[in-house]
Design a protein around this nucleic acid. Structure first.
Lengths: 73, 73
DNA sequence: GTGTGACTTAAAGTCCGTC
DNA sequence: AGACGGACTTTAAGTCACA
């Protein structure tokens, strides 16, 4: 069984965000999301919707697909 | 301004589902979702969560990223 | 700069049905 | 096989104070 998609997405988001060298606060501002909400997402405690994924992707200037975790065995 | 992510995702899902030659009802059963919900999604009336995207991807045997719509101008 | 618990309200998702 | 409606339950969105 694969780990929770929330956790895998959170890890993926953190990878991309740190790869861009920006803070959670900065990402939150760019995506027009609350700072604590970004924190919750990266810790795998929120099962985000596609609209939130889109906001994050636009803020990070990547395709939504790039934020998707890969299926695990 | 890009069209709503819900509409774009619904179109993408329908493409992949019909590409697999299965009905909404069959997809719903495979993904353990309700047939009415799959209908709502394909019509762009639901902003699905990552857990739902994962269920659909597993049911269709594709990566979650393959169900993601591409950013429009 | 980030983690966390608690909270309200908006929307996801279910289940019955008809056309 | 799929669109659509109504009523319902559950959960995400979004925010706050505080650590």
């Amino acid at each position: 069984m694969s780990r929770d998609v929330r956790v895998r997405f959170g890890e993926r988001l953190r990878e991309v965000r740190t790869g861009h060298g920006i803070s959670q606060e900065r990402l939150a501002a760019l995506a027009e999301l609350h700072r604590t909400f970004v924190s919750l997402i990266e810790r795998g405690e929120r099962n985000v919707t596609l609209q939130t994924v889109e906001k994050l992707a636009l803020a990070l200037d990547v395709e939504m697909a790039e934020l998707m975790p890969v299926q695990e065995q």
